[in-house]
Design a protein around this nucleic acid. Sequence first.
DNA 1: AGGACCATGTAAAAAGTTACATGATTCA
DNA 2: TGAATCATGTAACTTTTTACATGGTCCT
Lengths: 195, 195
Amino acid sequence: MARTPQTQLAVLGALSIEPMTGYRLRAEIVQTLGHFWHESFGQVYPALSALQAEGLVERAEAGGGSGTPFRITAAGRRRLRELLGEPFQQPPPRDQLLLRLFFGDQVPADLVRRWLTEALTGAEEDRARYERLRTELEAEAAAEAAAGGARGARFRLVTVLAGLHGAQARVRWAQEALALLEEGGAPAAGPAGTA
Amino acid sequence: MARTPQTQLAVLGALSIEPMTGYRLRAEIVQTLGHFWHESFGQVYPALSALQAEGLVERAEAGGGSGTPFRITAAGRRRLRELLGEPFQQPPPRDQLLLRLFFGDQVPADLVRRWLTEALTGAEEDRARYERLRTELEAEAAAEAAAGGARGARFRLVTVLAGLHGAQARVRWAQEALALLEEGGAPAAGPAGTA
DNA sequence: AGGACCATGTAAAAAGTTACATGATTCA
DNA sequence: TGAATCATGTAACTTTTTACATGGTCCT
């Protein structure tokens, strides 16, 4: 059984760029799609078997030593386009941090402050990473445009921009939230912080 | 079996504010936490049974006709605080839209444009809704501060601000992405659009 | 020879959704 | 009386994670 159209989509999409072993496929998904997607081995291997059974991918006997890569077939490319054309919906949200903050009046003020400062730090790191990625991808996209060949970098850039805007929003929000709770909240307890 | 600490947390948290039937509990979660949380009946009822078996909630024989509400016990409040104190992690992301956009060079330009305009419209609607909620909650929070009593509105405001910043970021991103793909992209195909 | 990493898979458990079945209450 | 909504629950299914088992390759 194909695990799910979603996993199929991710796997076929990745293989449409380059043939890969299951192991590397998963590594690429983690590294390259990691900002917005995730798959575990427990999904990738069964998905590959199912896709192979349907003739959408095939093993490409590699001379090289390690593992046999999978290659997408013509039918697989058709299926990929088909999947991309189907309507989709975002799953219902489940934000652990916001759930806890909602009940923030039930916990010590220090804990809430910690949640928010950690969120702020994380968001700032994300923002910096996305900035770097953006610079790289803008150069790549410009090169592609000049060469008139592949178009992929533009779309990868769009996904990175989503991450960047999101990270910026989280930074602003965390700062605003900290200020809001400070103002009129209980004063910081004890000499524990570094700030 | 308690479905999960997460569902437990949401259920105990909601009951810490007010006793409710399972049905209304779920409705409140959808309406009030809906921006960042979700539970289905299939989780709420088993979770309530499990919590009752552990003595964390109890049924409060209501004189009124419909259903018997659940009420949180003292042990339940302790457990809630305990759960709120435990470390947590955000689950790995799975963004259907970004996954599809990443492979955007494999689909017609019109489809990509549609994805982005729909995302833009949705984000604008979200933004307007969050703006309204913010106005309401700012008033509530001010009233609470003046009265010196409950503190809940400030935390609810913080969660709404998260939604607002996120929606604003999605609006900016979608606009930027549309502009980016227009510039140098294939011209719009056919006289189908309204723009 | 040994450690790190590449590679392939399976099995069990957890988490969550969806659909179904059933009945009470309220309101027009 | 009939429809809408409130209410409670179960069962089957889907999806996903986690942990385990196993062996190859490459580098030192």
